[in-house]
């Protein structure tokens, strides 16, 4: 699974892009976030408030219950502020 981090999620986790192999119990956006939170203080802090984090799976907005699969590109980012 390819993970991408943008804006303050990149700053706080210290990661822009990585390949991960989550355990089999990670099947949804919500379980992926729980697994990521346990990876270290930067991740725990960045993901402390799930409402502040937007998720895209294969470049489409996703919700907590949506499935994630090993070959997905999953992006984590704050609410957008362009324009």
């Amino acid at each position: 699974m390819k993970l991408l981090y943008f804006a303050w999620l990149k700053t706080m986790t210290g990661v822009a892009e990585e390949e991960v192999s989550p355990p089999p119990e990670v099947t949804t956006v919500a379980t992926l976030l729980d697994w990521l939170k346990a990876r270290g203080p930067g991740f725990a802090e960045a993901l402390a408030d799930p409402a502040a984090v937007r998720i895209a799976i294969n470049q489409e907005y996703a919700r907590p219950g949506d499935p994630v699969r090993p070959d997905d590109e999953v992006a984590l980012f704050p609410p957008v502020t362009g324009g």
Partner: peptide, 8 residues
């Protein structure tokens, strides 16, 4: 654009 396009 301001609420949907992924720019920061």
């Amino acid at each position: 654009l301001k609420t949907r396009a992924p720019f920061w």
